[in-house]
Every structure is written in C-alpha cells, then in structure tokens.
Design a binder for these strands. Structure first.
Length: 320
DNA sequence: GCCAGTCAAGTCCCG
DNA sequence: CGGGACTTGACTGGC
C-alpha cells in the first residue's frame, strides 16, 4: 500500500491575474531615474507576488492539493550586484509571516526549484558565490514563512565541463564549501542532458543528499534505461529525511521534442511507473511539471480515479 | 488587442 | 574567443 500525492508548479491556470513571478528587468530598473522610487516599485512587485502565493495556497487548500512548488522568481533583482544595498527582505516580513501562518493552518509540502543559474559544481569561484547567495535567499524565504528548511530546494548537479567524472568530483569538492545550513536544504535531481540517474545517485549516496527522481529526464537521458533496479537506492537516499520521497513527473511534448514538457501528463506511463513502485514505500509525492499546471493535475487525478486498484483519498491523493 | 522581441544570472555549441 | 541557443513567463513596444 502506497499513498500517492500530487502537486504542481508555481502558478495556476485556473486563477486569473495571479502570477507569483511578476518582474522588472535590470534594463527597466536602470531606465527609471529615481532610484528610490524604482526600489519601492520592486518591493511592490515582490509583495504582490507573495500576495498571489497566498491566493494560490488558498486555491490549493480549497481543492485538497497539499503539495506545491513556490516560484523562485518571487523577488525581482534580489541579489543583483548593483542592488546590494537593498534590504529586500524587510518589507516582506509580514507577507511571509501570513504565508507561514496559512501553511500552518492548512498543512502543505512547500518547496523550491531554484533555476539553472545555481550551479554548485562550477569551477568559477564567483559563480559559486552567487549560487550560494541565491540559496541563502531561499533559506531566508523559508525561515520567513517558518517552514523547516530541510530538503526544500531541488537542484541539478550542474555543468559537465567536457569531463563528467571530473565534474562530479568538483561537486564533491565544492560541497565542502557549502554552509551546512544550506546543505540541508538541498535535494538533487537527475537531468536530461548530462547527469543520469546513476551519476546523481553516486553523489547523493556519497554526500547524504535525497535524490528527486525525474522519470521524464531518465527516459530522455540514461546509459541504461533500467531504473527499477536502482529504485531501492533512490529510496535509501530519503531514509534520513523527515519528508516522504518526492519525484517529478512530466511527459514528452512529442517524439521530436522529447525533452520539452507536454501540456498534460500521460496517464498510462504514470500508471506503469506506479505499478513498479507500489508497496515499496508508504508514501510518495509526485510533482507534476506540465504546461497546464494545476489543470494537468486535475486531469490526471480524474483519470487515475477511473483506474481499478487506485483508490481516491481526496482530489490530489490516492492509495495504490 | 495582438505579436514579436527582450530579459541578471550559466553552460553548451558552433564558427 | 564571441555570440547564439537553450528555456521560461512576464512585460514592452510597435502596429
């Protein structure tokens, strides 16, 4: 018996005018003559993004969705080097607290997926520095919401730098430079171009990092298509975590654009996956990475509902 | 109101 | 070494 819980990413197709990722580019910022006014505008955008996150959480609670990835673009130009004097967190204290309060009252697994500019295995000191700064921002956001920071940020391994083995060792080397409080936030995901499930497992086992298995990436990039025999190892990377194992699901847009994400999740390949892992763990959380966001979640949930052997618990949770 | 082009950040790939 | 692609959603500017 395994409980399967579905989640989705960052924004809703159903809610109108509810983007948590409104932004201002640096070019726009520079074009404004009054720097103070420009900073106030950044703060208004950030506050509005957090406000929209709250609306999204309410939408989730109303629909029994308890697993959600927050946008990593909540604060435009945060950590930009020319805005280093800007204390972007101070005006966000209250909105963050409100989010935290809501999460406490309507428990939900919340996490982040900082974008691909965070590269922990980079050979460049400067890039590592800005990556750590970005992760520190994520940590501050979690703290502001009073959410336990453990295993909340999914990252990719990073660049291949023409020698994958060396790049893996570089990750291990740099990991030693990552503050412990940030280390404990991190989960690693197999990617679709460079680091396979096996490569990522190597790091996760060595460094004690939970592995987020991306099934679609695995199909797109592997030495050996067999993932089933590695599943026990994946599960094991979660043993020290407080949180249930988590994975990503999405479907190829087409045979030609295999790596691109489709609008919806193909239910039959998902069921094939579920049948493989059924009973191996008490609970699994599946993050749907589809263009139609919550729309894809609702459709998949409807389809699962029709399947024999799958019992619905609520809109987004099932027992198999 | 619609569409094409632009945007902080990194890496890869091509010339 | 320089520049474009990649990928993504938001937003601007031109029509």
């Amino acid at each position: 018996m395994t409980i399967v819980r579905l989640g989705y990413v960052a924004m809703s197709i159903e809610l109108q005018n509810c983007s948590p990722s409104q932004t201002m580019t640096f070019a726009q910022f520079k074009r404004l003559n009054d720097r103070e006014a420009a900073i106030r505008k950044l703060e208004r955008i950030a506050a509005s993004n957090l406000e929209n996150c709250l609306r999204l959480l309410k939408h989730n609670a109303a629909n029994s969705i308890h697993f959600f990835r927050l946008s990593s673009r909540l604060i435009p130009l945060a950590n930009h080097e020319e805005l280093s004097d800007w204390n972007y967190l101070r005006p966000l204290k209250d909105p963050l607290k409100r989010l935290g309060q809501y999460i406490k009252e309507h428990p939900s697994r919340i996490d982040f997926h900082p974008d691909h500019f965070v590269v922990l295995n980079t050979p460049q000191e400067e890039t590592l520095r800005t990556s750590l700064k970005t992760l520190a921002l994520h940590k501050a956001l979690l703290k502001g919401m009073n959410v336990d920071t453990e295993h909340r940020c999914v990252l990719h391994v990073g660049g291949g730098y023409e020698d994958k083995e060396k790049a893996l060792e570089l990750f291990i080397e740099n990991w030693g430079l990552v503050p412990q409080s940030i280390q404990r936030m991190v989960m690693l995901e197999n990617d679709d171009t460079t680091f396979t499930l096996k490569d990522t497992l190597y790091l996760c086992e060595k460094l004690g990092i939970p592995l987020v298995f991306d099934y679609h990436h695995h199909l797109a990039h592997h030495e050996d298509s067999d993932w089933e025999s590695e599943w026990v190892r994946v599960v094991k990377t979660w043993e020290s975590s407080q949180l249930p194992i988590k994975m990503h699901i999405s479907s190829p847009r087409s045979e030609k654009e295999f790596r691109a994400h489709a609008d919806y999740v193909d239910v039959s390949s998902f069921i094939t996956f579920l049948n493989e892992i059924k009973g191996t763990i008490p609970e699994i959380h599946c993050m749907i990475e589809a263009k139609q966001k919550d729309g894809a979640l609702f459709r998949l949930a409807e389809e699962l509902n029709e399947v024999k052997g799958i019992t619905r618990i609520d809109t987004s949770s099932f027992e198999i």
